[in-house]
Simulated assay, not measured.
Amino acid sequence: MSVLFDVPAAPVVKTTDGKAFPVRRVFCIGRNYAAHAREMGRDPDAEPPFFFTKWAETVVPSGSEIAYPGETENFHYEAELVVAIGKGGRRIAVEDAASHIYGHAIGLDMTRRDLQLVAREKGRPWDTGKNVEQSSPIGLIHPIAETGELTSGAIRLAVNDTVKQDADLAELIWSVNEVIAYVSRFYRLEPGDLIYTGTPAGVGAVVPGDRIVVTIAGLSDCVVTIGPPAED
């Protein structure tokens, strides 16, 4: 049987121990910092966090220039701690979750905010706002043996050297282990899965030419530049 067209290779994220982490799926946690939930017009005490998915092909490495996407006039940054899954499992207990982690990285969940909000108001899926080409930049993955479990530490984002997001991982509503346990109730997590754990308050728009730098204590920075719209 002949194949009709070439199948693209899975995106690969470099690790600090010189290995390559092939990306299988991307899960993103929404409204996992109370202050961000409030800035988005939601009550974190009444509405718990949740998750949505993105294509693996949205993942691009730190240092990339990402094209300003079409059909938006409000392209937002969201700084995130990313968890890389190294061992599969379903209905993982919170106390066992850390054993399924390969490592941690810094990521961005770039968002067409105007399209997301229109979809939210109409009760429709967020795909056009969130599942966007090049919208999941990621830095180097640090193995958990190097970092340990990350339960606290500064997370900051700057645009053109001006700090826009400044919080602490301790402010996560659902901890990393709770996130892993929750997502694994609905899907069997597999090696190669990435979980973007949510963004702090301070999200905002960028334009072509802007340079974004995200830092988390103990991890390699994630840096991207916003480029001009992609040409077809």
Rank of each mutant, 00 (worst) to 15 (best):
A105Y: 13
Q116G: 02
H100W: 11
F186S: 14
T162C: 06
R113E: 11
L81S: 10
H76C: 13
A93P: 00
A119P: 00
T147W: 06
P137A: 11
G153I: 05
Q165L: 14
D193V: 04
R112I: 01
L194F: 12
E80H: 03
I92F: 02
S184D: 04
R124I: 01
E178L: 07
R156G: 07
G107R: 00
A170G: 15
L189M: 01
E178I: 04
R120A: 04
P137Q: 14
Y77E: 10
T147E: 08
T111A: 08
R188V: 07
I85Y: 04
I144G: 07
S175M: 00
V94F: 10
V94M: 10
K130H: 01
V118K: 15
Y187Q: 13
S175H: 01
N160E: 05
G148T: 09
H76L: 08
L108A: 02
G139F: 09
L117T: 11
L115W: 11
W174A: 09
S175W: 05
I85Q: 10
D96P: 01
I101Y: 05
P125C: 10
A119E: 02
I85H: 04
V83C: 14
L157Q: 01
P191E: 08
G123L: 08
P191T: 12
I92Q: 05
A79I: 03
G148M: 10
